[in-house]
Amino acid sequence: MTKLASVAMAGALVMAAAACGGGEGGGTEGGGDGAARVGLAYDIGGRGDRSFNDAAYRGLEQVAEELDLEVQDLAAEADETDADKVARLQLMAEEGYNPIIAVGFAYSGAVAQVAAEYPDVQFAIVDDEANDLPNLTNLVFAEEQASFLAGAAAALATEEDHIGFVGGVENPLIQKFEAGYVAGAQHINPDIQIDIAYITQPPDFTGFTDPARGQAAAQGQYDAGADVVYHAAGASGNGVIDAAVANEQLVIGVDSDQYLTADPEEQPYILTSAVKLVDTAVFEFVQGAVNGTAEGGTVRFDLANEGVGYSRSNTELIGEYEEQLDELQQQIIDGEIEVPTEP
Score class of each variant (00 low, 15 high):
residue 45 G to I: 02
residue 32 G to N: 12
residue 30 G to V: 05
residue 37 R to A: 07
residue 51 S to L: 12
residue 28 T to L: 04
residue 49 D to N: 01
residue 28 T to F: 05
residue 33 D to A: 15
residue 39 G to K: 10
residue 39 G to R: 08
residue 35 A to D: 01
residue 34 G to P: 09
residue 42 Y to H: 08
residue 46 G to N: 04
residue 36 A to Q: 03
residue 23 G to D: 03
residue 33 D to Y: 00
residue 49 D to R: 01
residue 29 E to A: 15
residue 31 G to A: 00
residue 44 I to L: 08
residue 33 D to Q: 13
residue 53 N to K: 07
residue 41 A to H: 08
residue 39 G to S: 12
residue 42 Y to N: 12
residue 30 G to K: 02
residue 54 D to F: 11
residue 57 Y to R: 12
residue 31 G to M: 02
residue 58 R to D: 10
residue 57 Y to V: 13
residue 31 G to I: 05
residue 31 G to L: 00
residue 30 G to F: 01
residue 50 R to H: 13
residue 56 A to Y: 08
residue 21 G to T: 15
residue 48 G to E: 05
residue 46 G to C: 04
residue 49 D to A: 07
residue 46 G to E: 03
residue 32 G to D: 13
residue 34 G to S: 11
residue 26 G to F: 05
residue 49 D to Q: 04
residue 44 I to S: 00
residue 32 G to W: 02
residue 28 T to Y: 08
residue 37 R to D: 00
residue 33 D to P: 10
residue 44 I to A: 06
residue 47 R to M: 07
residue 22 G to R: 07
residue 40 L to G: 09
residue 53 N to M: 11
residue 49 D to G: 04
residue 48 G to H: 01
residue 47 R to L: 03
residue 23 G to I: 02
residue 43 D to V: 04
residue 50 R to C: 09
residue 56 A to M: 13
residue 55 A to G: 01
residue 36 A to H: 01
residue 38 V to E: 00
residue 45 G to C: 05
residue 43 D to W: 03
residue 49 D to I: 04
residue 33 D to I: 09
residue 45 G to A: 06
residue 20 C to V: 12
residue 21 G to E: 15
residue 34 G to K: 10
residue 45 G to D: 09
residue 45 G to T: 10
residue 57 Y to L: 11
residue 34 G to V: 03
residue 50 R to V: 05
residue 51 S to T: 15
residue 35 A to S: 14
residue 23 G to F: 02
residue 31 G to V: 06
residue 58 R to L: 06
residue 34 G to N: 06
residue 31 G to E: 01
residue 28 T to S: 13
